[in-house]
Design a protein around this nucleic acid. Sequence first.
DNA 1: ACACGGTAAGCAAGCGCTTAGTAACCTGAC
DNA 2: GTCAGGTTACTAAGCGCTTGCTTACCGTGT
Lengths: 199, 199
Amino acid sequence: MSTPSRAETTRARLLEAAVTAFAEKGFHGTTTRDIAGAAGMSPAAVYVHHRSKEELLFLISREGHQQALDVVRDARASSADPVEQAAAAGRAFAEFHAHHHTVARILNYELAALSEEHRAEIDELRTGIDRELRALVHDGVASGAFDTPDPALAATALASMGIDIARWYREDGEWSPTQIGDYYADLALRTVGAVRPAG
Amino acid sequence: MSTPSRAETTRARLLEAAVTAFAEKGFHGTTTRDIAGAAGMSPAAVYVHHRSKEELLFLISREGHQQALDVVRDARASSADPVEQAAAAGRAFAEFHAHHHTVARILNYELAALSEEHRAEIDELRTGIDRELRALVHDGVASGAFDTPDPALAATALASMGIDIARWYREDGEWSPTQIGDYYADLALRTVGAVRPAG
DNA sequence: ACACGGTAAGCAAGCGCTTAGTAACCTGAC
DNA sequence: GTCAGGTTACTAAGCGCTTGCTTACCGTGT
């Protein structure tokens, strides 16, 4: 229960400012002066707490990807039934991308701005997400619970429709993250061709 | 059948170079020297043929959005049956985003870099696409051919899953644009809850 | 003679990042 | 309690370079 040090607080403020700026204007459209200004500090303060502007992007990207991977893993672990797994994954992945749409935009649209080493580390997390979804669809097809013309492409489509929510979602839009989660739980089942679970 | 003038050819070469560069590195990550260099010209040549870097983005965006709108309109006009319209729209919209993935990335990820006036003009074309898809789903629901818990969200999802193909599609990937088109024709029918047409 | 299609050179502004310095806060000997 | 000595968190100023774009000029075809 230790209170965070002043340095930790400042570090977090800079990261939060970077998230907002990167999501709104992109990595290359954001200046270190933007970030420092939004955090209420001088441009030099960025370099007291972080090596470079790219490191800020990497820290944001790693944390966000880890969370996204956890979301999918938790959904798979929530049930032994592939049908329930598909609904849970569709719901949770959609809710994640709606609720964390600012971070999610950075995760998916700023990959090219990462250094080669950082990009490689992020790619491993992305591969993990893809593997989870492919395994989920594979299990359902193998058990006869799913009916899809192309299981691998179905897994890609599941990831894709969730990710793109971060692009079109608006906080003042027609649907709340919960409503979107409900809809995408159903849409995931339609995508894999599952018989709806009773209830 | 007039041969294009030298100016017209150069203009097109600069636009093509801008498409490649913007898609790969984003608008802000691309320099006017990148564009001129890729077109085999000096940096000043850009300004012989175009007002600004932003104008290049606008020209690319307007042309691409017009084509995307035409694709959806043609799909709707191809049949009076909402089910066939949904399949045709799903297929054509997906094929478009796979085949023209470089342009499509610019259309969907560089909107914020447009000037206010240009952005407004592009938004009209985007609204047109949205309206077509909402009308399509509405017609199917009204005729009893579709079954979906949220028609407006279904239309959004249809657009979304097509658009995101531009993000994940790779020319050396697992699927060709035609295969993707086939799959998304079927996926569109699942999304709107249509009874598959005979055949 | 001259319009057309282009370049060489460079300007003002803005970029990521560094350096040198300072105010504010601890620590502990007395 | 207090106050020198050291540390932490930060800033003012600016460096070297790149940016979008302009200006002044030139070779070529008619």
